[in-house]
């Protein structure tokens, strides 16, 4: 029964997110502010369903949902959409953020559903208290970076409009450029700190699981690379005064490093220690 409810809700989520993503795209391309508003009101019930799936999966399996593609998509997407909804509820002018987070969550959820929807037994290698800390901070970092990229995109669109000297109320409804710029930086900082905690928690866990804090595993190296690059972005902003468009573009580009770290490596590389399952104990 729980499985059925979970499946129905998951597909409901996917369809609503798909509809919202379409409305968001149409709204942005054709400057229809009303469509953005409708999409945000669609996202909220979908987020409630998403929360129920997240909770059901946790209760059903007994562990923090971080095992396999679908659970990672549920958790990662939950944080990304959660931040979007939270910001929208705090400030309605932040409605455009969903343009980045909702399509990303939709693709992740769809991929997860097609790959392995049923819960997998938790491998011995994942039975650790560090799982929750490590994965939760990783997903919070992803959510924060996704929001920073969303702010980056909104900044560029609004700034393009300003540069063209185009009039109209569509982009006027978004916050001032300086506010978008600061909000983007806030989320970079948030992601940077949570990613550091994720890396540190992972290193401590790795010592218990693999015997060394750092093993130059592709996933470890990519997470370090993305962390260093975001650190560089913070340095550029704080000490060299990079802001506005330059920082916005940087945020959009840097999100790719996080996506590669979380979802890209395991599909390309075979020798990663971050692929958990049968071979983690019997090989």
């Amino acid at each position: 029964m729980t499985e059925l409810i979970e499946n129905i809700l998951a597909w409901l989520c996917i369809y609503i997110y798909a509809g919202a993503a379409l409305l968001l795209l149409t709204g942005f391309i054709f400057n229809k502010e009303r469509l953005l508003r409708i999409s945000n009101y669609l996202i909220m019930p979908a987020f409630v369903a998403h929360t129920v799936i997240f909770a059901l999966r946790w209760v059903r399996t007994g562990y923090f949902p971080a095992n396999g593609e679908l659970e990672n998509a549920i958790t990662g997407g939950w944080f990304a959409v959660g931040f979007t909804v939270y910001l929208f509820l705090r400030n309605r002018t932040f409605s455009g953020l969903a343009l980045f987070t909702v399509p990303a969550t939709l693709l992740l959820l769809g991929y997860g559903m097609m790959k392995a929807p049923a819960p997998l037994p938790l491998a011995a290698s994942l039975k650790s208290s560090w799982l929750l800390v490590h994965v939760m901070f990783a997903q919070v970092a992803f959510g924060a970076y996704a929001i920073a990229s969303g702010f980056g995109l909104v900044y560029i669109l609004k700034d393009n409009n300003r540069r063209k000297g185009a009039s109209g109320s569509f982009y006027e409804k978004f916050p001032r450029l300086e506010v978008i710029d600061e909000s983007m930086f806030k989320f970079v900082v948030y992601g940077f700190i949570t990613e550091l905690i994720m890396i540190v928690a992972g290193a401590i866990w790795a010592k218990d699981l693999w015997g060394s804090y750092w093993g130059w595993d592709p996933v470890e190296v990519w997470s370090l690379v993305s962390w260093l690059l975001y650190g560089l972005a913070i340095h550029l902003r704080v000490t060299l005064g990079w802001r506005g468009r330059r920082l916005a573009w940087l945020m959009i580009i840097l999100l790719s490093t996080v996506i590669i770290t979380y979802w890209g490596i395991d599909t390309v590389v075979e020798n990663s220690r971050h692929i958990f399952g049968v071979k983690s104990v019997t090989q």
Partner: peptide
């Protein structure tokens, strides 16, 4: 002692 579930090692 060890245990497997659906081919996944769950305890050692």
């Amino acid at each position: 002692d060890y245990s497997f579930e659906k081919g996944t090692p769950t305890e050692l």
